[in-house]
Amino acid sequence: MRNWAGKASGRINAAVEAIVAALMLLLVLDVWLGVMDRYFFHWQLPWPEELARYLMIWAAMLAVSSGISRREHIGLTAFLHKLPKPIRRALLIAMDLLSLALFAYVLWYGVPFANGGATRQAMIFGASLRPFYAAIPAAAAVASVQIALVLLRDLGTHIEEIPEEGLL
């Protein structure tokens, strides 16, 4: 079970990271285009500034799940290390469950939020805001799945390997 969860988390994360890399690349190109336009092309494109914000939100929010898969979201561990191992593990499992509840909350209210964007117009492309707002529930959904998987994978053991001095 723990192995399976770890593998599933890794597979999903690989797919998410590929999407995130593509979004980051688009983000870089978009901002360059905005600069080039103003300086060389003079097309006066209306969308690079707005699109950059939406790409940034999509990329960063999706990447939150990646940070979960790799346990990169930082918390304080000093207090936990003073506790006996079983209590520490139980607390860490409880924190994972609460984190899952948090992202489930964002997903639950994120869907109507994104759908509410359907009747609102973005200033660019004449598009609705739904595809951009969708970043929030989509990222929350992937994050929820990842928390569930890494919870099973680690079962509260993940802060036990202390990185070695000077390791980088």
Partner: peptide, 26 residues
């Protein structure tokens, strides 16, 4: 009130100068 969460998340990040962060990291 609970329903406001996603909107605060989106709008809290919807700020162009924040771009400096990923770009300088990259």
């Amino acid at each position: 009130f609970l329903a406001i969460g996603p909107s605060k998340i989106f709008n809290g990040l919807n700020i162009f100068p924040f771009l400096a962060m990923p770009f300088f990291i990259l």
